[in-house]
Structures are given as structure tokens and as C-alpha cells.
Amino acid sequence: MKIPISHKATKRNQRLFFLVMIVLFVPCLFYLNLSATQFAEGIARIPDIAKQFLQISLDDLPKLLTELLTSVIIAFLSVVISVIVALLLSFVIADTTAPNRHVAKVLRVIVVVIRTIPTTIWVLLAVASMGFGSMAGVLGLLFPTTSFLIKSFTAQIDEAGKDSVEAIRALGGTWWHVVCNGAIPTLYTTFLALIAFNFEMTVAETVILGMVGAGGIGVLLQEYISYYEFAPLLMGILVVFITLFLLEMMTNQIRKRLNSQAR
């Protein structure tokens, strides 16, 4: 006799999940009305474009690298400014250190709204207000990076800073004592790791952001694509790939170190 060992309710729910997935998928596919001829034409174009891609040239490499540096710098500056703003605000927002509950609540809602709007949209708005260029990139990135940092900082303050904050409060320390002597020294390394992680995310984003007019290597990529210059485009893609790949490896290292610290 076969004895079922799996949990029945879980199994039923999982089946339901897949059923819903299929039931949603089929009408959506028909709704989108993808045309087979368009697909076939696109596929037929692949060999031609691949040939153009493969005429790789090193001519534009210096230009690409300068623009890459610009991208990294945009990310760097926006993270530096964001860290300053986020440090100031996250102690006002975090539950354990908030001086005023109502202010904290309002700020929390604002941070959620800022986080919901994708970075690209922020940069688009900044470019529309400031004009094309690196400054618009820094301004546009400022909002999502700050809100990300505030969110992760407050989570850390609430989680890890509780004991030292309570100890200083019990001794009659002021808010400044709590923040400067209690929370910051205990959370110093965690904050640094979070900032590094955020910096790497931001670099990955700046590469894209040039494509909407915020300066950096994305501007070049967008130019190549709109003028159908595929040979330098491949070079650009490779430069971006190598940079982001190295960054990803660094992020993994940081995450590992964070994990081992937490244990």
C-alpha cells in the first residue's frame, strides 16, 4: 500500500497556485495578441545584426571608459549625499530612537511613496527639471538611494541598537547621547556594509540612467542603438558587463561577510 507523506493542505494550495497561473496566462497571452509574422521577421533579422555586432572595434574604448568613470562618479556622489541625509533622518524615523512619533510616521509614509516610484522615473523627472547631464543624474538618484538607505538603516537601528539605546536612556542620556554614543558605534560596520551594497546597486542603475539622459555610459549606449552602430555597442555592452560582474562578485563577498558577522 502507498502511504502519502506530504501535507495535504499545502499540496492543495500549491496545485491551486499553478492552476491560477495557467488560467491567468492563457487569456493574457491572447490579450497581448503577439503577431507571428513580426516574430518571424525579427528572428530573420538576427543573423544580419549579429554580423554587425561581431565587427568589434576598440576605437571607442577610451571614450567608453571615461563615460564609465562618469557613471561610477554619479553613483558615488549620490550615495555620499544620500548617506548624509539618510543618517540624519533614519534616527528620527526608527522606533527606538524617534524623538516624535507623529513626525516619524509621516516621514515613514513619504519614504514608502518615494521607494515605490522606480528610479528611472525619478531620473526622468530630474532631467525634465534640470536639463540633461550628470547633475540631473545625481539629483534623480538621490531620492531612491536615500529612501533605500533610510529603510535599511532604520531596520538595523530597531533590531540591533535596542540594548545600548535603552542602557543610555536609563542613565539619563539625551537624544544626542543615544544617537552618537549608543547607536552609531554599535552599528558602524553594518552601516558600512549596507552603504557598500547600496553603492553597487546604484552603479548598476547609473549605467541604465544615461539612457534617459542623465549622463554616463548609458548616453553612449543609447546613441549607438539609435544610430544602429552595433560594433561599438558590443564593446560598450562588454565594458558594462565586466564592470557589473566584478561589482556583483564584490557584493557577494560583502554579503558573506555580513552573514558571518551576524552568526
Partner: peptide, 23 residues
């Protein structure tokens, strides 16, 4: 590690403007 917007832009070149490159 190739940014998503780059993929999208290349696919727009391949398939033309519309829903297909987006998907």
C-alpha cells in the same frame, strides 16, 4: 549583468516598436 534597458532597446531594433520587444 547587461542592463535590462539595453536588452529592451536591442529587442526594439529587432522586432520594431510594440509589445513584442517588451515581453
Amino acid at each position: 549583468n547587461v542592463p535590462f534597458l539595453v536588452w529592451a532597446a536591442i529587442l526594439v531594433v529587432l522586432f520594431g516598436v510594440g509589445t513584442m520587444p517588451g515581453i
